[in-house]
Simulated assay, not measured.
Amino acid sequence: MNELMRRLGLRVPVIQAPMAGGISTPELVAAVSEAGGLGSLGAAYLSPAQIVEAGAAVRARTERPFAVNLFVPHPLPTVTPEEVAAATAELAPLHAELGLPAPTLPERVQEDFAAQFQAVLEVRPAAFSFAFGRLGTTERAALRESDILTVGTATSLAEAKALAADGVNAVVVQGGAAGGHRGGWMQDDLADTLALTRAVAAAVNLPVIAAGGLMDAADVRAALNAGASLVQCGTAFLRAKEAGTSAPYRAALAAADPGQTVLTRAFSGRPARGLANRVTAEVAIPLPSPLQNALTRDLRTTAARTGRAEFLSLWAGEGHARGREGTAAEVLRTLWPEGEQ
């Protein structure tokens, strides 16, 4: 057991990745924490009130530590009316196929980060993780005062060094095989997970959390041997019983062959890895993030409700074909079997 595990009170060196958008339900977060890992609530798309409510729902199910994750905001991008018209025209046939009105860009495209952050402080999780950037001095001081462990996300050695200079307690190094959004902001190397883990562990004096393509016990051991203190797994938990993964999403994962993932900006305007489908193939001129995410929200919501996986953001890492169904505790045991605890 290493120092990071001791500080977080973990029995298993595995973090369930904070998958925003409803995947990391309070039930999933609590189940992973209760089984000895660290459950993580992906709260980036939740309102402040929803964050407080979800935190209470986790605590109603477990007394174990858990984490909350947010996206560091950036200034809203400036786009021309012509760019908006082109992006909406590209989505219009897909909307029509689902019986939806023509797509329009809503006035509000993201949550208020400052208010979200205050809600996190109110929840007071054991750890706060973040992606897409660096925290300000005020936020870092507030987390220290609340004794909340701070975890940044890096997709390159340069980003890891910047986070270390800010004084984070640990850094997630996200290899190129990882599913979902690329968590960096400055330079994305799309590096092999183990190679990036070794490089960061050798260069920065803080605990490293390896992420990307880690699907079984052999992967976890390899990452720990490469210098990681913990591993973070998302795709491995997508088909867990407690996850909020929709039925068409689950079916697409179960049917997908290896090698079917692509990096795409089609759904959110930010690079993310998921299963290829019609949207990733047909949307070529998305708006930048977070505008495209707001523009495609109705499409994704309706697709999930009507079972149309070809219109869903099917985030998944390169190891998706090795995923399995089961409870969160059963998935966790495949990553760290009982005999190794």
Score class of each variant (00 low, 15 high):
residue 253 L to A: 02
residue 253 L to R: 02
residue 253 L to I: 07
residue 253 L to T: 01
residue 254 A to W: 05
residue 256 A to K: 08
residue 257 D to S: 08
residue 257 D to K: 13
residue 261 T to V: 03
residue 263 L to Q: 04
residue 263 L to M: 09
residue 263 L to W: 04
residue 264 T to Y: 03
residue 264 T to V: 02
residue 264 T to M: 01
residue 265 R to I: 00
residue 265 R to D: 04
residue 266 A to Q: 03
residue 266 A to D: 01
residue 267 F to I: 01
residue 267 F to W: 00
residue 267 F to V: 00
residue 269 G to Y: 00
residue 269 G to C: 01
residue 269 G to D: 00
residue 269 G to M: 00
residue 270 R to T: 00
residue 270 R to F: 05
residue 271 P to L: 00
residue 272 A to R: 04
residue 272 A to F: 02
residue 273 R to D: 02
residue 273 R to Y: 02
residue 275 L to N: 01
residue 276 A to P: 04
residue 276 A to D: 08
residue 276 A to I: 10
residue 277 N to F: 05
residue 278 R to M: 11
residue 281 A to I: 04
residue 281 A to D: 12
residue 281 A to P: 05
residue 282 E to M: 15
residue 282 E to L: 15
residue 282 E to W: 14
residue 283 V to P: 09
residue 283 V to F: 08
residue 284 A to P: 08
residue 284 A to D: 13
residue 284 A to F: 09
residue 284 A to H: 15
residue 284 A to R: 15
residue 285 I to N: 14
residue 285 I to M: 04
residue 285 I to C: 11
residue 286 P to Y: 11
residue 286 P to K: 05
residue 287 L to S: 03
residue 288 P to S: 08
residue 289 S to M: 08
residue 289 S to D: 07
residue 289 S to R: 02
residue 290 P to D: 06
residue 291 L to Q: 02
residue 291 L to N: 00
residue 291 L to W: 00
residue 292 Q to T: 02
residue 292 Q to W: 02
residue 293 N to C: 12
residue 293 N to T: 07
residue 294 A to C: 11
residue 296 T to M: 12
residue 296 T to S: 15
residue 298 D to E: 15
residue 298 D to C: 14
residue 299 L to F: 13
residue 299 L to T: 10
residue 300 R to I: 10
residue 301 T to M: 14
residue 302 T to C: 14
residue 302 T to L: 14
residue 303 A to I: 14
residue 304 A to T: 07
residue 304 A to E: 10
residue 305 R to C: 07
residue 307 G to L: 11
residue 307 G to D: 11
residue 307 G to H: 10
residue 307 G to S: 11
residue 308 R to I: 15
residue 309 A to G: 05
residue 310 E to A: 09
residue 311 F to E: 03
residue 313 S to H: 11
residue 313 S to V: 03
residue 313 S to P: 06
residue 314 L to C: 04
residue 315 W to K: 08
residue 316 A to H: 05
residue 318 E to T: 03
residue 318 E to Y: 01
residue 319 G to V: 05
residue 320 H to K: 06
residue 320 H to Q: 13
residue 322 R to N: 06
residue 323 G to R: 05
residue 324 R to F: 04
residue 324 R to G: 11
residue 325 E to R: 10
residue 325 E to H: 15
residue 326 G to M: 11
residue 327 T to A: 15
residue 328 A to R: 09
residue 328 A to D: 06
residue 329 A to T: 03
residue 330 E to R: 09
residue 331 V to Q: 08
residue 331 V to W: 08
residue 332 L to Q: 10
residue 333 R to G: 10
residue 334 T to K: 04
residue 334 T to F: 07
residue 334 T to R: 11
